[in-house]
Lab assay of single mutants.
Amino acid sequence: RALPCPAHVVFRYQAGREDELTITEGEWLEVIEEGDADEWVKARNQHGEVGFVPERYLNFPD
């Protein structure tokens, strides 16, 4: 997929490290980079905060 792209959060995730982003179910993010580890992506939330989130917690519109 082309980046950046929108993504809808389907599961809540609490950041466990400083470089991760806490996300809430129902929130929209902008995915800006593929992650440095499998199944992680770097995203920006509506407040401009950036961090890594688990890709499987997101839904990408067609």
Rank of each mutant, 00 (worst) to 15 (best):
G16P: 03
G51S: 01
F11G: 15
P6E: 06
E25M: 06
G51I: 00
E49F: 10
V53K: 00
F11C: 13
I32N: 01
V41G: 02
E55H: 09
P54W: 10
T24R: 12
E39Y: 07
E27A: 02
G48L: 05
W40A: 06
V41A: 04
V41F: 07
E34H: 11
V50N: 02
D38N: 12
R17F: 08
T24G: 07
V9G: 03
V50L: 06
P61M: 11
L3V: 05
N45S: 03
A7M: 00
I23L: 10
L29Q: 02
F11A: 15
N45D: 03
L21S: 04
Q14T: 08
P4V: 06
W40S: 07
E39L: 09
A7D: 00
Q46I: 09
R1M: 04
G35T: 14
K42R: 08
E34W: 11
A37L: 12
D62L: 09
E55R: 14
R56H: 10
E39C: 10
R56P: 09
Y57D: 09
E34P: 10
V31E: 01
V53E: 00
K42Q: 10
A43Y: 01
F60W: 11
D19Y: 12
G35L: 06
D19H: 12
E34L: 12
V41K: 05
E33R: 06
P6N: 03
H47F: 07
E30N: 08
T24I: 11
A7S: 03
W28P: 10
G51V: 01
I23V: 12
G35C: 08
N45G: 03
L29K: 00
R17S: 12
R12Y: 14
R56N: 14
A43I: 06
L58A: 02
N59A: 14
I23N: 00
D36S: 11
H8M: 07
L29A: 02
F60K: 04
Q46D: 08
R44D: 00
A15C: 04
E55D: 11
E20Q: 13
F60E: 03
Q14A: 09
V31F: 00
R17K: 13
E18V: 09
G26Y: 03
F52P: 01
I32H: 04
W40Q: 10
G26E: 04
V53H: 02
A15R: 08
V31M: 04
A15N: 05
R1I: 11
E33H: 08
G48F: 06
P4S: 07
R12N: 14
V9R: 01
H8D: 06
N45M: 01
D36Y: 09
Y13P: 02
E30R: 04
R12A: 14
V31A: 05
D62R: 06
E27T: 04
T24N: 08
L58Y: 01
E34F: 15
Q46H: 09
V41N: 00
T22G: 06
V31N: 00
L29F: 00
Q46A: 14
E34I: 09
A15Q: 07
E33P: 02
K42A: 04
F11Y: 14
E27H: 01
R12P: 10
E20R: 06
Q14P: 03
W28S: 12
A15V: 03
G16C: 14
L3P: 07
F60T: 04
H47R: 15
D19M: 10
R17E: 12
G51M: 01
R56F: 09
F60L: 08
V53M: 03
N59E: 14
E33F: 02
D38K: 11
V41Q: 00
L3M: 10
Y13A: 04
H8N: 05
W28N: 12
Y57W: 06
F11I: 15
R17W: 06
E39P: 08
L21E: 02
L29N: 03
Y13H: 10
T24Q: 14
W40C: 08
W40L: 09
V9K: 03
G16W: 07
E49Q: 15
V10K: 10
P54A: 08
G35M: 08
T22K: 02
E49N: 14
A37D: 11
A2S: 15
D36P: 15
V10D: 10
E20T: 06
R1L: 04
R12M: 11
G51C: 00
V9D: 02
V41I: 06
H47N: 12
A37F: 12
E30Q: 12
N59Y: 12
I23R: 02
F52T: 06
A15S: 09
D19R: 11
V50S: 09
P61A: 12
V50K: 08
F11D: 15
F11K: 13
I23G: 03
V31P: 00
G51L: 07
I32T: 07
C5N: 00
D19T: 14
F11T: 14
P61Y: 06
Y57C: 15
G51Y: 02
L21W: 03
R56V: 10
V10E: 07
E25F: 05
L29S: 04
H47I: 08
G48Q: 03
P6I: 14
I23T: 07
E33G: 14
Y57Q: 06
I32V: 11
E27G: 00
E27P: 01
I23C: 07
R17G: 10
A43H: 03
R44A: 07
V9I: 01
K42Y: 05
G48N: 09
L3W: 04
P54Y: 09
P61H: 07
Q14E: 12
L58C: 04
L21G: 01
E20A: 08
L58H: 00
G35Q: 05
F11S: 13
R1N: 13
D36V: 10
A43T: 05
R1K: 06
E49W: 06
V10C: 12
R44S: 07
P4N: 08
E18H: 04
P6T: 08
E34D: 05
P4K: 05
R12K: 15
E33V: 03
A37E: 15
E34C: 13
L21Q: 00
V9E: 05
F52H: 08
D62H: 13
E34K: 14
L58P: 00
D38T: 10
V41E: 00
E55W: 09
E25W: 05
D62S: 13
V50M: 10
Y13I: 02
E55G: 09
P61W: 09
H8Q: 09
L29E: 04
N59C: 12
L29P: 02
Y13L: 03
V10Y: 10
E30F: 06
E18T: 12
R56S: 14
E49S: 12
C5V: 05
H47K: 14
Y57A: 15
K42L: 09
A2P: 14
G51F: 03
V50H: 04
A7R: 03
F60P: 04
K42E: 04
V50W: 05
